[in-house]
C-alpha cells in the first residue's frame, strides 16, 4: 500500500509539471501585453518597455517558466497585473468558497445518485424505474446555468426562501450556507442525473451475481441485500465517474458562481481572462488542474479501500 502511494504521488507531481508547461505555453502565445493592461493605453512606449523589464517579461520564455515554477514552489504565484496584489492572496481568499461549493455539490450528487439509482435498480422494469429514468434524462438535458436561473426565479424571487445571489462572507455562517443552497442544487442536479444512471446499471449488474442470490437464500430483507451486499459492490464504477465528474463540478462552479455572483475562483478566472491578467489565469488554471488530479488520486485510493482484492495486489 505504501509503495502504491509513493508511486502514485510521484506520478502526481510529474502530471502537475506537465500541466504547468502546457498552461505556461498556451498563456504565452496568447496575444495581449500585460504592461498595456497595467499602465493603460495612455502610457508611453518607453514606460511600457521599462515595466516589461521590471516584470521580467523581456527574459526568454524558458527562463520565465523556471522562475514561475520556482516561485510557486516557494508559495509565490507572482503579482496580479490587474489587482496589483499577490496572486496567492487572491486565490486563498476565494478558494474556500469554490471548494465548499464543489464539495457540497459532489456530496449532493452522491446522495441523489445513490438514492435514485438504487431505488430504480430495485424496481427494475416497473413504474418507479421508468419515473427515475425519465427524470434523469431530463436532468441530463437541462443546462446547469438555465436550471440555476429557474431556481432563482422560484426559490429566491417568488418564494424568497434563499437569496438570489451574492455572498455575505464566512463571518455570517448561516447566511453563507443559505447562499450556497441554490448553487449546490444547480451543480448537483445534472451530475446527479448522470451518476444515478451509472449507479442503476452498476447495481443491476451486481444484482445478477451469485452472492446476491446467496444473500437472498439466507433470508435477508431486500433492503439489507441492497444496501449491504449490492451497494458496496456497485460502488467501483460509481466512484470512477465521481472522480471524473469532480472535474466537471469544479469547472461548473465557474458558470454557477457567475450566475449567483459568488466571489469564488470561478469568478476570479472570468475577471482575470477579461483583464488579460495572464499571470493570475496561469495560476488559476494550474490550481483547477491540480484539484482535478488530486480528486483522481483520491479515487484510486478509494478503490483500494473498498476492495480487499485490490489492496492485496497493491501491497
Amino acid at each position: 500500500m505504501s509503495f502504491f502511494l509513493l508511486r502514485r504521488t510521484g506520478g502526481l507531481v510529474l502530471t502537475l509539471l506537465a500541466i504547468s508547461i502546457v498552461v505556461f505555453a498556451v498563456m504565452n502565445v496568447l496575444p495581449g501585453d500585460p504592461a498595456l493592461t497595467i499602465l493603460g493605453i495612455d502610457a508611453t512606449d518607453d514606460a511600457r518597455a521599462a515595466l516589461r523589464v521590471q516584470l521580467g517579461l523581456d527574459d526568454p520564455a524558458p527562463v520565465r517558466y523556471v522562475q514561475w515554477i520556482a516561485g510557486i514552489a516557494r508559495g509565490d504565484f507572482g503579482t496580479s497585473y490587474s489587482f496589483g496584489v499577490p496572486v496567492a492572496g487572491l486565490i486563498a481568499e476565494r478558494l474556500p468558497l469554490t471548494l465548499s461549493l464543489a464539495l457540497s455539490g459532489t456530496l449532493l450528487t452522491l446522495v441523489i445518485a445513490l438514492a435514485a439509482g438504487l431505488y430504480s435498480a430495485s424496481r427494475h422494469g416497473r413504474t418507479g424505474d421508468w419515473a427515475v429514468m425519465i427524470l434523469s434524462q431530463l436532468g441530463i438535458a437541462i443546462p446547469a446555468f438555465w436550471l440555476a436561473i429557474l431556481l432563482v426565479l422560484l426559490f429566491a424571487v417568488n418564494l424568497r426562501w434563499f437569496p438570489p445571489g451574492g455572498f455575505p462572507g464566512w463571518s455570517d455562517p448561516l447566511g453563507s450556507l443559505r447562499s450556497l443552497v441554490l448553487p449546490t442544487i444547480a451543480l448537483a442536479a445534472v451530475q446527479g442525473a448522470v451518476l444515478a444512471r451509472v449507479t442503476r446499471s452498476s447495481a443491476l449488474e451486481v444484482m445478477r451475481l451469485d452472492f446476491v442470490r446467496t444473500a437472498r437464500a439466507t433470508g435477508l430483507s431486500p433492503a439489507r441485500v441492497l444496501w449491504r451486499h449490492v451497494l458496496p459492490n456497485a460502488l467501483v464504477p460509481v466512484i470512477t465517474i465521481v472522480g471524473m465528474q469532480f472535474a466537471g463540478v469544479v469547472t461548473g462552479t465557474i458558470v454557477i458562481e457567475n450566475v449567483f455572483y459568488l466571489p469564488g475562483l470561478g469568478r476570479l478566472i472570468f475577471q482575470s481572462i477579461a483583464n488579460r491578467d495572464i499571470i493570475t489565469v496561469q495560476a488559476l488554471v494550474l490550481m483547477v488542474a491540480a484539484v482535478v488530479v488530486l480528486a483522481n488520486f483520491a479515487v484510486d485510493v478509494a478503490y483500494a479501500l473498498i476492495d480487499p482484492r485490490l489492496k492485496a495486489r497493491l501491497a
Partner: peptide, 9 residues
C-alpha cells in the same frame, strides 16, 4: 461456484 457465491468485499 463457492467463489462467486460469497460477497468478495
Amino acid at each position: 461456484e463457492p467463489l462467486a457465491a460469497l460477497n468478495p468485499l
